[in-house]
Nucleic acid binder design. Structure first.
Lengths: 232, 232
DNA sequence: GAAGAAATACTACGTAAGTAGCACTAAATC
DNA sequence: GATTTAGTGCTACTTACGTAGTATTTCTTC
């Protein structure tokens, strides 16, 4: 059972937003609040096979690791009101990925079987789920073609561009990440990302400080995102 | 309206398989049969925004192109009883990809709005759709991490391995593709794929002839799939 | 504010993959 | 069966990326 204050969260959630107020109230009893410390991987303790999570606060990355090279690839960087793990929810079999918090995170958990029942019972959830899955597919298609067809500087520029808040015009979600984490987000390595960040700095595109990226010249950044150095 | 003989197709289809016989019969009136010639891109003529397709015969690839380098990336290679475009179905906005037939293909089309209505009206379709979408997401996750974390020879070996028919032990679906098409499937180029195919041949792993790949040594192929040359 | 940890900046180097070009060959097409 | 086209095999070359190593800076925390 979680507090009333979480009603607002559910009301803004992509899966629950269309439900009537009284039903959301009823849901509160099924949720549990969990706090995960920063930089922890709770997969062994709390398998996503049994629980479905909504992020109330903090960031969680879903990532893969190549055991040989120890290289990481971040598949999704989840934030407030994102949910996981959608694949376990749909397929009831293990999703071979890791989860790790980038901040201290507050999560709402619900038994995954309960969530499955809700999808069947409440058409509104089901109806919201479909376009949500579509968006996931679209994001992954974009990711794959980016990695294959664009070079690192383009990918880095695009990563930054897609995380600019349209209203504040400021970088969000990834603005306080280390070079290492940025590299994981575009399928590269720390040293290479730093090399390109330095070049961006030289070119007057970005202002860089420790765990901080600021945009100085949006126009040039847009050009970098489009430019594919492999051709012309 | 299509012929009775397509009932068997629908009965085996991932989305329609759970529907009662009489309902499938009723569906027949909504479908149209279309034949697309080999190597054609029918996107402009028959936008997937308005129709939903089931493949009855032949192969269709969904791919992206980088306009600058003209390089292609095949996202999905669809075969009999696969459907497209699932993203247009879910999101009702343009899916920025191309479609092209690799063989002469026979397709069943249904107005996409009709398909949307069916999803709402028949829970069985909706229920089948969810794990189908999950599989798409899983495939794309695998694709992305492959491209980032594995080198070309591993990706080529894995591509071949995933297309071996478990029963016949023979290569299917991709066994008659050109080096060019194989390259598109792993995010590389013709010349590079050929280089590795030649090496596989030298190593006694494959037998290669024009538009034909045969497996000679499965064990060695499995080793290639696991080996990541970038480490060790 | 000293000591330690974490993140960054930079240099040097090796290499897989991409590109270009061309000869050769099988297979459509007329 | 002559001609064209598509696909393959191969050589030579270039380069962006990844790796390694190290110095430096910035934060943390005791």
């Amino acid at each position: 059972m979680i507090g009333e204050n979480y009603i607002d969260l559910l009301r803004e959630n992509i899966l629950f937003k269309d439900l009537e107020e009284e039903k959301l109230q009823g849901f509160l009893t099924s949720f549990q609040e969990e706090v995960w410390p920063k930089n922890t991987c709770n997969i062994t303790k709390t398998p996503t096979l049994f629980k479905f999570y909504i992020i109330a606060e903090g960031r969680v990355k879903i990532y893969r690791v190549d055991p040989e090279s120890a290289r990481e690839l971040t598949l999704f960087l989840l934030k407030k009101n994102d949910v996981f793990d959608i694949l376990c929810l749909l397929e009831n079999c293990e999703h071979r990925v890791f989860y790790e918090t980038l901040d201290e995170a507050t999560l709402l958990s619900v038994p995954i079987e309960t969530m499955r029942e809700w999808i069947v019972k409440f058409p509104q959830i089901n109806k919201s789920l479909l376009p949500y899955l579509g968006r996931q597919i679209r994001i992954l298609e974009e990711y794959t073609s980016n990695v294959v067809l664009a070079d690192i500087s383009s990918r880095l520029a695009r990563l930054i561009l897609t995380n600019i808040n349209k209203k504040s015009n400021k970088l969000e979600l990834i603005n306080d990440l280390s070079n290492d984490e940025l590299a994981n987000l575009i399928g590269s390595t720390r040293a290479v990302v730093n090399r390109h960040l330095q070049q961006f700095k030289k070119d007057g595109i970005l202002k860089i400080s420790r765990k901080k990226v600021e945009i100085k010249n949006l126009e040039l950044l847009l050009k970098q995102a489009e430019k594919n150095h492999s051709s012309g």
